[in-house]
Amino acid sequence: MPRIVVDVMLKPEILDPQGKAIAGALPRLGFTSFEAVRQGKRFELFVDGEVTDEILAQAREAAETLLSNPVIEDVVNVEVVAD
């Protein structure tokens, strides 16, 4: 079944407490190469049948209106993944 993957991230200028806490833990475990971490959300929308342009457009709209909070988040990726 084809899936539409939607990735949502906090806007770059918004504080990401989650990413900050993880970034703090990494060096303690010896992972010292990473300057910063930002945590996002991945959604998978399953489509029964072919993903038409119209369905993809709907997914984009859903991503902008429901899956993300436009006040603090950006939709950074909407893509079709066929299995």
Partner: peptide
Amino acid sequence: KPSKRPAVQVGDPFA
């Protein structure tokens, strides 16, 4: 530079 600064402050209760 980012032209828009966020009006929304995000809290970090752990901090």
